[in-house]
C-alpha cells in the first residue's frame, strides 16, 4: 500500500470521527482541496500524522476548532471579478430598486470583503437603509473578523483598482480610515449587514430573499452538497429574485436550473422565473 492510500484512509476516518462527535460534516467536501487544507493544517499542528491527531481531535474541542478554522477559511477580495459587480450595478440593481425594501443572503461570506463591496455598491445606487444583508459563514472566527470590518492596508491598492473597474462612483478611500497597517471600514457600511453563523451542509434556508450570493464556496463541495446548497438557495429566493454564483459555478445540468434564466451569461447572475 502506498503512503498516499494510507493517508486517504486516515482522512476518511478523521472526517467521519469529526462528523460523529461534533456534527460537522466535511465528507461532502471535494477531496483534492480538503486534502490540501488538511495537510496544511497538519503541518502547522503538533501532530505527525492524521491518526495521531485523531485521538486528541475527538476529545479536545479546542483542537477540533482549530481544524474547522483551518479547513473552512475561504479567501476573497473586495470587488473580486469587477465585471461581475459592474453587472450587478447595471443589470440587477434597477430591479432591486423597484422594491421598497430588499433582503439579501450572502452565503459563505468569509471575512466579509464581498459583503462590504455589495454594501458600497447598494449605497452608491441610493439603496442605503432599504436593504438588509444576511452574511453567513460556517467559520465563526472569520465571521468575527468580518463584523469588525478591518482589513490590511496593503490590500487597499488592489481593492481600489477593482472598485474602479467595477464602476465605483466615489473615491474608494472615503470608505475606510487608515490606522497604522490597518484599514477600518466605515460604520455606514456595517449597519445594514447582519453577520450570522450558518452551515450550508446542515442548516436551513433564509426566507423570502430578493438576492442570494454564494460565490466560490460550492467549488469546494462534491456534487451532492452543491445540489443541497442550490435547493436551499432556490427555496430562499422569491420569484424574480437573483442568484449570483462564482465565475466557475453554473446552473447547467443542475436540478433547479430550469427555474432560472441567466442574466449576464459569463458572470453567473441568474434570475428566478415567476410561476
Amino acid at each position: 500500500m502506498q503512503s498516499g492510500e494510507v493517508e486517504d484512509v486516515e482522512i476518511r476516518l478523521l472526517l467521519e470521527g469529526v462528523q460523529r462527535i461534533y456534527g460537522y460534516d466535511f465528507r461532502d467536501y471535494a477531496d483534492a482541496s480538503i486534502r490540501r487544507r488538511l495537510t496544511h493544517w497538519l503541518a502547522e499542528s503538533e501532530f505527525a500524522t492524521f491518526s495521531q491527531a485523531q485521538s486528541r481531535l475527538l476529545r479536545d474541542r479546542g483542537v477540533f476548532e482549530s481544524l474547522v478554522r483551518g479547513i473552512t477559511v475561504n479567501v476573497t477580495e473586495m470587488f473580486r471579478d469587477p465585471a461581475f459587480f459592474r453587472a450587478v450595478r447595471e443589470q440587477v440593481v434597477p430591479f432591486l430598486k423597484t422594491y421598497p425594501f430588499v433582503k439579501i443572503w450572502h452565503a459563505g461570506c468569509a471575512t466579509g470583503e464581498e459583503a462590504y463591496s455589495m454594501a458600497i455598491l447598494l449605497n452608491e445606487e441610493g439603496m442605503a437603509g432599504r436593504y438588509r444583508m444576511y452574511a453567513t459563514d460556517i467559520n465563526e472566527t472569520v465571521l468575527q473578523k468580518a463584523s469588525e470590518g478591518v482589513m490590511p492596508i496593503m490590500e487597499m491598492q488592489r481593492f481600489t483598482r477593482n472598485y474602479q473597474k467595477a464602476g465605483g462612483r466615489a473615491s474608494f478611500a472615503d470608505y475606510y480610515t487608515a490606522r497604522y497597517d490597518r484599514a477600518i471600514l466605515s460604520a455606514t457600511l456595517k449597519k445594514d449587514i447582519v453577520f450570522a453563523p450558518h452551515n450550508l451542509a446542515v442548516d436551513g434556508e433564509f426566507g423570502e430573499m430578493n438576492m442570494v450570493l454564494c460565490r466560490n464556496v460550492m467549488i469546494y463541495f462534491k456534487p451532492a452538497l452543491k445540489e443541497r446548497c442550490l435547493r436551499l438557495f432556490d427555496s430562499s429566493l422569491l420569484p424574480g429574485g437573483f442568484l449570483c454564483l462564482g465565475l466557475k459555478e453554473t446552473l447547467e445540468k443542475k436540478k433547479i436550473g430550469e427555474r432560472y434564466e441567466e442574466l449576464a451569461p459569463p458572470l453567473r447572475i441568474y434570475r428566478k422565473r415567476y410561476g
Binding site: A30, D31, A32, S33, R36, R37, N74, V75, I219
Partner: peptide, 14 residues
Amino acid sequence: LVERGGFLSFSADP
C-alpha cells in the same frame, strides 16, 4: 485540481 474518479475541480485558495 484533479479529483479521484477523473474529474476536475477548482479552488480559490491563496
